[in-house]
């Protein structure tokens, strides 16, 4: 399998996404905004459609739309007092509607569009890989540097605010990282499934880990394993890669839930 160029390319790009998606998703899940990736995915769809319409790279226009949408959600939530789920709903439906209108205007309801919606990891090019690697490295380095601050805000946002931590700035930065993750992951798992890779490994890890750091590192390992196993299954089974990756991640959640129940059953009652 790995003697094929396109599979090596798929594994390389998939590995970056397999690490970055749960790394960013970890802090989103702790803040109970698990669906933000889904909402931003729909904004990215509008970006892809805009790229088609004006003849620009759909990946770059999706990147701008996704980061802009994510920052808009955070602004609505924090500054305008809009409830998190309402801000997401506004983004979700507006993004989808704008995408449909723009795609119809561009006359591009075709296989190229489906590649963005459902992922087309086997068509990843060298320039795609470079973009994914560079942006992925920036995202992971940012998370690594700010891990303690983002974890502290997830535990007690109000306390951090009172202590003078720049909570609003860090929240906007996290939102921008969500947008970045969505944009670079869409060629791998597709706009409609990218949020799953941000959330499912994190949920699985939190079922069994006994500390925040262990949960974070395990989520990254499960994200990576989901991509590797999913790609392998998709290659040998001739199945859609994005769907296979997400189903593996879902299987990890089921297994971790079962393992967590057994472990908790062994812990003496408090």
């Amino acid at each position: 399998m790995l003697e094929l160029d396109f599979m090596r390319m798929a594994f390389a790009a998939g590995s970056v996404v397999g690490l970055l998606a749960p790394a960013v998703g970890f802090f989103v899940v702790q803040r109970r905004m698990s669906l933000i990736g889904d909402g931003i995915g729909h904004t990215a769809f509008a970006g892809v459609a805009f790229g088609y319409l004006v003849g620009l790279s759909p990946v770059l226009t999706a990147l701008v739309a996704a980061v802009g949408g994510a920052v808009a959600v955070e602004w609505l939530r924090a500054r305008r007092g809009t409830a998190g789920d309402q801000a997401l709903a506004l983004l979700f439906y507006t993004g989808l509607a704008a995408g449909v209108v723009l795609v119809s205007a561009a006359g591009r309801f075709d296989a190229g569009l489906f590649a963005f919606l459902f992922g087309a990891i086997l068509t990843v090019t060298t320039s795609d890989l470079v973009l994914v690697a560079v942006l992925g490295a920036v995202g992971l380095a940012t998370i690594g540097l700010l891990y303690r601050a983002l974890a502290g805000i997830a535990l007690d946002e109000e306390g951090a605010h009172v202590a003078g931590v720049p909570v609003a700035l860090l929240n906007v930065l996290l939102a921008a990282l969500v947008g970045l993750t969505v944009a670079i992951s869409m060629r791998i798992v597709g706009i409609l499934l990218v949020a799953a890779l941000m959330v499912l490994p994190v949920i699985a890890a939190s079922r069994v880990a006994r500390s925040m750091r262990a949960s974070f590192l395990l989520a990254l390992a499960l994200g990576l394993a989901s991509v590797w196993i999913g790609l392998t299954v998709s290659y040998y089974g001739n199945l859609a890669a994005g769907g296979a990756i997400v189903l593996v991640a879902a299987a990890f959640v089921l297994a971790a839930t079962a393992a967590g129940s057994v472990t908790r059953g062994r812990v003496p009652a408090r």
Binding site: Q30, L145, L146, R148, A149, A151, G152, A154, L155, D156, E157, E158, G159, A160, A163, G164, V165, P166, L170, A205, S206, A209, R210, S211, M212, R213, A214, S215
Partner: peptide, 27 residues
């Protein structure tokens, strides 16, 4: 308003209290 259901240890929670005084970046 506290993240009491986060998968954190006591030490991790208390460490978050040094965020402003100890600096935001790195360990």
């Amino acid at each position: 308003r506290l993240g009491t259901d986060a998968p954190a240890t006591v030490r991790e929670v208390v460490s978050a209290g040094r965020l402003a005084a100890g600096g935001l970046l790195g360990p």
